[in-house]
Nucleic acid binder design. Structure first.
Lengths: 233, 233
DNA sequence: TATTTTAATTGTATCTATTACACTTAAAAA
DNA sequence: TTTTTAAGTGTAATAGATACAATTAAAATA
């Protein structure tokens, strides 16, 4: 096809900001990789890759994530596109960032290790290559906004979780203490959780009830015109 | 340079969703163009263009806007990147959308006309090419979110405006009636406006006081930990 | 078996923000 | 002088957000 001939083309990449929540350490983490190739070999970076001719950006990001973790059908959200001419010293690369929310325990550890991937807490990240630190900051901001108004937090937790664990997650995301009674009041009042007949007994003698997030309840909730809201003191 | 050799490259474009507010008709409008070239010649579309080798996405978007309107230093916000393989039937083009907020009266009318640009109300948009309708929807959503929590509305108004005009703008953005007293109470309580010693006397005998948004006041306001909020009934 | 220990669970009162609502006023026109 | 028209103004009721501490369940220990 002759259309659009003579127009410059660009290398286009995707970079994935992969969030996971460590339920024991109560820390929000990022899956980072030590680059095994030039430029910046040996430096920490986000998981990324070039976009092929026959795939969309979303497909490319899903592929990168799959190759690193073995996971498919992960919650991903496009975040921002970085197009500064000099952002990659190797060549001009335009990169679209996506953030992914995954359940840490689900990843293929062997595969991740083979690719040089490591979990690092967001509160003490290493220096990252290029503009990846900016990418992380923007993605974290976005996640913080989203977690207030959409039930995305559950993507980071196991299928079943206790209210204490859910609150710990939110405290890790926002890096601040939340009032226990207010938090429970608010999340339970939305009626999106199902209380199970089972207790988590590792962290306390008494044990804490397990809950499960029910997507169908959320559907009904939104269809009735309600809005998810976990913006709590 | 041999780095990254053998990797497929892509056409990359930007598309601009150019918002303007018609203060007389009380309508939010988009500056759309009738395409003068194939594919889809004669159809309505957003203003767009390919990204050159020596410019960032933001620079490309600013250039497209400048060429159409003669305006520089316009409020623009990157919105989303559309990378579906088949989104443009002419060739595979990856396009990043930006929305721009401009003061309708500021544009170079002659230049705009020469480029086939026309203002169209958002409440009755024509059919647009490709995925441009989706782009507009997403941008409008984004604008609606932003206008609640950031003082972006003023970008769409003349330097001086009346509170009635400001409210009309918000009603046009959200397509619903807002309570006059509550709106005024809220905007004035933030202390971001300066009341001028002059009245707008065209639309009423009594006249309405002109105000001006003071960016410096907004700086102080945010530095004190306050957040802009015009989410009003 | 009774006591201790520890984390989970629960409710209310106060404060703040949002909402609903209608009359008065300024100024030109008649 | 009266009429007309849009601008401008305040308060009470409601809902939502916040601050705050004692009780309970269950294992571990004495």
């Amino acid at each position: 096809m002759k259309i659009y001939s003579g127009i410059p083309k660009h290398l286009v990449a995707v970079d994935c900001i992969i969030f996971g929540y460590d339920i024991m350490e109560k820390e929000l983490k990022l899956l980072l990789i030590k680059r095994g190739f030039e430029p910046a070999k040996g430096k920490w970076s986000l998981a990324g890759g070039f976009v092929y001719e026959n795939e969309s950006l979303e497909e490319a990001a899903a592929r990168v994530l799959y190759n690193l973790t073995g996971l498919r059908n992960v919650y991903m959200e496009q975040n921002y596109t970085y197009g500064e001419v000099d952002r990659d010293p190797g060549a001009r690369v335009i990169s679209t960032s996506f953030y992914a929310l995954i359940k840490i325990q689900d990843i293929d550890r062997e595969l991740a290790e083979k690719n040089g991937a490591h979990w690092r807490s967001i509160s003490r990240l290493p220096e990252l290559i290029f503009d990846h630190t900016r990418m992380v900051e923007r993605a974290l901001n976005e996640l913080r906004q989203q977690a207030k108004v959409k039930p995305v937090g559950f993507e980071l937790l196991p299928e079943t979780f206790t209210l204490v664990q859910l609150q710990d997650l939110y405290e890790a995301i926002y890096q601040r203490k939340i009032d226990k009674r207010n938090f429970r009041k608010k999340i339970l009042s939305m009626n999106l959780l199902e209380k199970l007949d089972e207790k988590e007994k590792i962290t306390s003698k008494r044990g804490a009830w397990y809950y499960r997030f029910i997507p169908e309840k959320y559907e009904v909730f939104t269809q009735k015109g309600f809005y998810f809201n976990l913006d709590v003191s």
